[in-house]
Design a protein around this nucleic acid. Structure first.
Lengths: 174, 174
DNA sequence: TAACCCATGTAATATGTTACATGATTTT
DNA sequence: AAAATCATGTAACATATTACATGGGTTA
């Protein structure tokens, strides 16, 4: 393996290995229907990505003969499975904060007048409560993990809102 | 405003408004020293970004005359402040899951053999405990927010690890 | 049969990464 | 005086977005 897999590459490989074998389209749809827009699942991102992984020997593609459509099925090579393992256990990357659009906005929340901030917090809390459709999966840990993460974000927001209610916010004097 | 600000554009604008006025270099450094690699803070990203925001009339740049260096100071225009307000209260975006490299790996954790999974969880927990340097800021909410988020991620990991310990994991039979 | 989903892909464009280049100022 | 940091920026490259194009299969 030349260099470490990107997050998108790792996730795509993982998706293929989880499915055993699947079409690039299926990979794309998994990303597209994810509750995060980070995984946009656009065709222009996924098809070239799959081509790159095939070129690097991490995936193999074979045509699906049962069908007159131009359908391809990809699966992971031994090298692909090895690369995936390395990616999955990359603790340094896993520990990274990543990106959260809510956290970013709270980070700059002193730039909003108190009224608008409270309205924003209430509206966001509402959307979090509605929630996105849970990932459909047969795996025992996937749905609870999704739920747990959603709960934690909602809790973080509630804690923040509570602080805002308690002390009217002002610039810290250190 | 033509189209909505991207996350990077919004954060850069927010950074400028928070500072009152600052150099593009200062914006870049804020991103570079953030605890998330998502905000890479590379020169090749930030300088062109600032140029775009100036071109769109959201920032103005003036040379800093006190200095013989080719130094520029940017500040937000009224249009820039308005665009920032819209970005800050975009609840739909704020509610999005965003991206978390730990969550992604846990999502695919059944692809790791139990031994490796446990080792990974332990190593990541260690890194989370060490933590990244807290953002230096005079603002009363910034440091606690950072700490709260770190705490919640560590807790999510601990909960997940506890589940793994309790029930040896297997494919769900739905 | 019309509309929609499955399934592939590309073209133009926008954005971001990596690495380099330049020179002033500050610290050791 | 050397090394590090401040401060700017670009060039080549890699990657992603948006929008379009094509055609087979399925459903209302």
């Amino acid at each position: 393996m030349k260099r470490r897999l990107t997050e998108l590459e790792g996730a795509a490989l993982a998706q293929v290995v989880r499915a055993g074998a699947c079409t690039p389209y299926a990979i794309k749809e998994t990303f597209r229907t994810s509750p995060s827009r980070f995984w946009s699942g656009s065709a222009g991102a996924v098809y070239p990505l799959v081509r790159r992984l095939v070129a690097r020997g991490l995936l193999v593609a074979r045509p699906d003969l049962r069908d007159r459509r131009a359908r391809r099925v990809v699966s992971a090579t031994p090298a692909g499975r090895a690369a995936l393992q390395s990616w999955l256990v990359d603790a340094e990357r896993a520990a990274d904060f990543g990106f959260d659009p809510l956290r970013t906005r709270l980070f700059y929340s002193e730039l909003l007048p108190p009224r608008r901030l409270k309205a924003f917090l209430a509206e966001t809390a509402g959307l979090l409560a509605i929630g996105s459709p849970a990932p459909r999966s047969d795996l025992a840990h996937v749905v609870p993990l999704h739920a747990a993460w959603a709960r934690l974000r909602a809790k973080a927001l509630a804690e923040f809102a509570e602080q805002v209610e308690k002390k009217p916010r002002r610039r810290g004097s250190r």
